[in-house]
């Protein structure tokens, strides 16, 4: 049974890119422990042969034709940007490459 230590919450929060205060880590560890315990019973309900459903209403082959439509004007695209320069979104320095 997984235990939600504050370390585990911190690891997952880092993966989710969310800074948490120590008090939040503490509280979330307790809450998530309870929630995970409640939801993990899904695995007892199903067998290996049960197919997974990812779309409630099955559809297939939904395409659009390769046709260009006008772009959003660049000034509209940039209007909400916290910062921009030379028609581009300005973001803080990026460390490392993915």
């Amino acid at each position: 049974m997984p235990t939600f230590s504050t370390d585990e919450v911190a690891r997952v929060a880092a993966l989710a890119r969310i800074d948490l205060e120590p008090a939040e880590l503490e509280r979330l560890a307790g809450e998530l422990e309870v929630i995970v315990h409640a939801v993990e019973r899904v695995s007892e309900a199903v067998g290996d042969d049960t197919p997974a459903t990812s779309h409630p209403i099955p559809l297939a082959n939904v395409f659009r034709e390769d046709v260009v439509e006008p772009s959003l004007p660049a000034q509209d695209a940039l209007a909400a940007a916290p910062a921009s320069e030379d028609g581009r979104f300005l973001v803080p320095q990026i460390l490392g490459e993915d």
């Binding site: 309900a45 199903v46 049960t50 997974a52």
Partner: peptide, 8 residues
């Protein structure tokens, strides 16, 4: 497993 529950 949750997606399988969905099937059920």
């Amino acid at each position: 497993s949750a997606q399988k529950v969905r099937t059920l």
